[in-house]
Design a protein around this nucleic acid. Sequence first.
DNA 1: CCAAAAGTGTTTCACGTACACCCATGC
DNA 2: GCATGGGTGTACGTGAAACACTTTTGG
Lengths: 213, 213
Amino acid sequence: MVFGLDDADLKVMLIQRAGAPFEGRWALPGGFVRPDETLDEAARRELDEETGLKRVFLEQLYTFGAIKRDPRERVISVAYYALCNLRDHKVQAATDASAAAWFDLHKLPALAFDHDEILKTAVERLRGKVRYVPIGFELLPRKFTLTQLQRLYEKILDRQLDKRNFRKKVLAMGILEETDEMQQGVAHRAARLYRFDEPSYKRMVKQGFNFEL
Amino acid sequence: MVFGLDDADLKVMLIQRAGAPFEGRWALPGGFVRPDETLDEAARRELDEETGLKRVFLEQLYTFGAIKRDPRERVISVAYYALCNLRDHKVQAATDASAAAWFDLHKLPALAFDHDEILKTAVERLRGKVRYVPIGFELLPRKFTLTQLQRLYEKILDRQLDKRNFRKKVLAMGILEETDEMQQGVAHRAARLYRFDEPSYKRMVKQGFNFEL
DNA sequence: CCAAAAGTGTTTCACGTACACCCATGC
DNA sequence: GCATGGGTGTACGTGAAACACTTTTGG
């Protein structure tokens, strides 16, 4: 499944099922693994086919194997989740689904199969992981303001953060690179743009640095 | 796979393969999922059949799906790991393996298939998880001394811990119940035995408590 | 009485947390 | 000039880390 961040909210992409079972219901995108591809490759292919997304963060979530998950036959699903930002990546609806749309995580329709359970597992994983691995940046444009970053964490962790403490902490980590660009076209003082400095993050991890927020 | 703790070390159980491929090599225990059982049920059944262990901690780890994992044909493996202590649970060798044995994690033989990768993934998971979920107790007998608990954490985290700080911290959490029993048959001052108080741990978690060590 | 591990407090320092005002910009 | 968010520093308290000696028991 794909999580995305628009300006305001954390969203998930759902597709509307065109055929039985659960015709017309919203579901997570997915498909079958081919004999000549790994699980990761299959997940990336399906993601591309169903949403047009390439080169985004993608990680295995969990494998679901309840017996009657699919009413037709036994299906075991290896679930993956992806992160992207809705600004840099245009997302096309898949051709074989009747529709694709982004849903706010707080306003979800009833889902097909056991997809609500899968989605719940993914949100928990995201919420846990975002605090000690810098995957939050995957949801933002390459250059972002500190306020955008803070809003993101507030959305995912579902609580308010103190502006000064937040900025102090992330800047002190030394994983953000200050650019000389400013936000454009806002009706108030423009904020400075920062970039996630991945090379220096990786260097620091090797020396025992622990991201934690 | 099964991790176990004897008095000194953290170990993993391996079985020696009786047939091709990799005949004679050591491997992780495993088997196939039946159509009428969930993945969790299959993992528990295999665990029981191959080691005689029941009612131990068991959790899904990761699903491995590289194409040539098994040289014979495409196999996708949903890996699980279990934790137990070698005192309370006698472990029998499986009947269909030529041998089963515990191996110190630092003295491993070459493993069959991609089992070294699976094992590495499991150790990382264990190392990460043990710090913020109290699963370490699964590796100890029901009643244990604080020193045993500390040794366990030192083994898993692979570093020394300060005795006074460790005791202060775990006791302050309020998840250990002091029993009135003492260690028996040791050639020095006997230590007090404690028990993990799971009900009160669960109550505290509901109120926002976070285990962390 | 000796060896071996149990048990116990205090000080120091770093970091998390709480908190309020001026600044720059567009309309 | 006013509304809107950008940007900044300090004081306080809690918790992590460093550190050494006395007690108990069995052999």
